[in-house]
C-alpha cells in the first residue's frame, strides 16, 4: 500500500512540477493554467480529496510498517554497519516527515494564503484571473521561505532516490536485469525533480523572474 499510494503521489509531484515550471513561460501561461485548474470545479475538489486520502494512507501505512519493523528488533545492535542500504532508504520516515511539514506550510502559504498576508492583497490580473505568477515571485523573494523550500525539495529528492525505484520492487515489477537500471534511473529522476523545483526560487532570488504587479 505504501508503494501504491507513493506511486500516486509521485504522479502528483511530476504534474505539479510541470505546472510550476510554466512560470518561466510568463504570467499569462501560468495564470491561465491556474485558472483552468479552478475551472475544473468539483473535479478539482475530487482530485484534491483523492490526493489527501493518498497522503493520509501513505502516512498511515508507513507508520504501521515502521512500528512493525521496530518491533521486529527489540534489542538493538551495539554496533551496526550497513553494506548496501543507503542513507535515503533507511531514513524514509525522516525525509517523509520533513516533506510533510513542508506540504502543510506550502498549502498554508500559497493555497490558503495565511502564512504571508501580503499575498492576499494581490489584485487580479488583466483577464480577471488570480495572479499566481506574482504570488510565486513574491513568495520566493523571502530568502527563508526559499531556503526551507530548497531543503524540503532536497529531502524529497532523497525520498525519491529510494522511492522512485523501490515501488517497482514492491509491486513485483522488477527482475534481476532491471534492478541496476531501476536504481540508476530512480536517482536520475529524483535529481531532475529536485533541479526542476529548485530552479524556481533560484530564478526568483537571482532576479531572473520579476513580479507582474507591485504589492
Amino acid at each position: 500500500m505504501v508503494a501504491v499510494t507513493g506511486l500516486v503521489l509521485l504522479g502528483f509531484v511530476i504534474g505539479h512540477l510541470l505546472g510550476n515550471l510554466q512560470i518561466f513561460l510568463g504570467p499569462d501561461w501560468i495564470n491561465s493554467y491556474a485558472e483552468h485548474l479552478r475551472d475544473l470545479g468539483p473535479l478539482l475538489w475530487f482530485v484534491r480529496a483523492f490526493l489527501l486520502v493518498n497522503v493520509v494512507a501513505h502516512i498511515y501505512y508507513t507508520i504501521r510498517l515502521t512500528i512493525d519493523n521496530r518491533r521486529a528488533r527489540p534489542n538493538a545492535y551495539a554496533q551496526k554497519d550497513y553494506v548496501k542500504a543507503s542513507f535515503a532508504s533507511r531514513y524514509m520516515w525522516l525525509s517523509g516527515l520533513v516533506v510533510l511539514a513542508f506540504i502543510i506550510y506550502h498549502l498554508a502559504h500559497f493555497t490558503l494564503v495565511v502564512a504571508d498576508p501580503r499575498l492576499a492583497t494581490l489584485k487580479l490580473d488583466a483577464l480577471q484571473r488570480h495572479d499566481v505568477y506574482s504570488m510565486m515571485v513574491y513568495g520566493f523573494r523571502n530568502v527563508i521561505v526559499s531556503a526551507f523550500y530548497v531543503l524540503a525539495m532536497f529531502l524529497l529528492m532523497l525520498h525519491l532516490t529510494h522511492g522512485a525505484s523501490s515501488f517497482f520492487q514492491s509491486l513485483g515489477w522488477n527482475d534481476k536485469t532491471m534492478t541496476p537500471h531501476l536504481a540508476r534511473w530512480g536517482r536520475v529522476f529524483a535529481w531532475l525533480i529536485f533541479i526542476g523545483y529548485v530552479s524556481i526560487p533560484l530564478a526568483v532570488l537571482l532576479g531572473l523572474v520579476q513580479p507582474a504587479q507591485p504589492l
Binding site: 519493523n69 518491533r71 521486529a72 553494506v83 548496501k84 532508504s89 533507511r90 523501490s166 514492491s170
Partner: peptide, 15 residues
C-alpha cells in the same frame, strides 16, 4: 513470526 517488512534497502542481498 514477527519478522519486519521489506523496505527495499537491499542490505539482505549484500550480506
Amino acid at each position: 513470526e514477527g519478522f519486519g517488512n521489506c523496505t527495499n534497502t537491499y542490505e539482505c542481498e549484500a550480506v
